[in-house]
Simulated assay, not measured.
Amino acid sequence: MTILDRYILKRYLLTFIVMLVLFIPIGIMAHLAEQIGKIQDNEAPLNEVLAYLGHFSIYIGNFLFPIFLFLSVIFFTSKLASNTEIVAMLSSGISFNRFLRPYMIGASIIAVFMLLMGMFVVPTASAGFNEFKFKYLKKGKEEQKTTNIYNQLNETDFIYVSSFDPRRKVGSNFTFERFKEGNILDFKISAPSIRWIEKDSTYRLTSYRKRKVLGDTAIIETKRRLDTLFAFKIDDLTPVSYIAETKNLIELNEFIDDQRRKGASNINSYILVKYKRWALPISVFILTIIAVGVASIKRRGGMGLNLAFGIVVAFVFIFFDRIFSTLAEQAGLEPMTAVIVPNLFFGILAFYLLQKAKR
């Protein structure tokens, strides 16, 4: 590694670290100021509040890592350009691609760091962040709305609930079906309401009705109320909406396979979380190239113009990411497509700006 590589790489990493040190505490203070009333009203213990702020720092920092990196590269590259250092480097005979090499080394270091964080550290922080949020900040509110839940428990058993309230643990229009060999219905249990009774670890069915099939005849059994057991847990039936974010890579793969086997209706949300963990480090390279392409040219507007452009690009990047994520979660768009399209669009923009900077 030459002096030039060490010089640029040092500026790359130090500026990024300074950006994190400056802005993450600001984000924490702004978030705390917004939520302090709810924290006091719900009497959250100090140790849990401090743990929550630590989890929040990792959770939000991981999400904004590429944006912080993008703005930091624009900042220090603009300073290089305004001091005519880039002109001196290129005038010495090195190519623009050679000048770009330490940036790619820095991006590789950050990408590996983000990948490891996203796979193994951020899930733990996400669990702590969301648990505190629903325990104190959204106390008494419904964690999620679930409708048309259909799960395959194993090769023979299937369950369906038209709607479910996770807070009250009550489901509507419950159906349990068991099939025999040859895909023949053995029996079917239905009830307008199913409730999880935690103290007894049982399920309570109201207006219980069981239809047992025996050849060409059927035996009907009905009860006004029945407390019974089933071979599934209430959390397995309706996992909280953020459950995929709290699992590391190995656990997430197993969870997705299990939910796919059960025929979970929101499987795209879980797959999207998995693909985003791989796509986020790739965005580091794309945003680094865009930042270099924009900031390496000395402009009359100086650093302010470059930073303004960077902020606009950052907002557009987040906008694209959220739009395609929503399409994957609610409109049936393939999660792989939702992850690839934003990076592909900004990858083309990066290539264009890089070629323009070379000229």
Rank of each mutant, 00 (worst) to 15 (best):
A279S: 13
K262E: 14
E245M: 10
L252E: 04
S296L: 04
N253P: 01
N266P: 10
I271T: 14
I290C: 02
E245A: 10
I286D: 03
L252D: 03
A295H: 02
L287P: 06
R277A: 10
V273N: 13
A264Q: 10
I286N: 00
N266M: 11
E254F: 02
I256G: 05
I256S: 03
S296R: 05
E254H: 04
E245C: 07
N266S: 12
R261D: 04
I290H: 01
W278C: 12
Y270S: 08
I267T: 12
Q259W: 04
A244H: 02
S241H: 07
V284P: 11
A295F: 01
Y275I: 14
R260T: 10
V284Q: 07
L272E: 13
V292N: 05
I256F: 02
S265Q: 14
D257T: 00
Y270F: 12
L272T: 15
E254W: 00
G293D: 00
R260N: 10
E254N: 08
E251C: 01
K247C: 06
I250V: 13
L280H: 11
I290M: 03
A244C: 04
V273G: 08
P281W: 09
Y270G: 02
A264F: 13
Q259L: 12
G263P: 09
S296I: 04
K276W: 14
L280I: 14
F285L: 06
A295Q: 03
D257M: 00
N253V: 08
L272M: 15
K247A: 07
V284C: 11
D257H: 00
Q259D: 05
A244M: 02
I290S: 01
G263N: 12
K262F: 08
L272A: 15
F285H: 09
V284L: 09
S283Y: 08
A264W: 11
I290E: 01
V292A: 05
I267K: 10
S265E: 14
A244V: 04
N268L: 15
V294Y: 09
E251P: 07
I250Q: 12
I290N: 02
Y242N: 09
L272H: 15
L252P: 03
D258L: 04
K262I: 06
L252Y: 03
S265L: 14
E254Q: 06
E245K: 14
G293N: 03
I267F: 12
L272Q: 15
L249S: 10
I256Q: 06
L252F: 02
F285Y: 14
P281Q: 07
R277V: 09
V273S: 13
R261A: 09
I286S: 00
I271S: 11
K262T: 09
Y270D: 05
K274R: 14
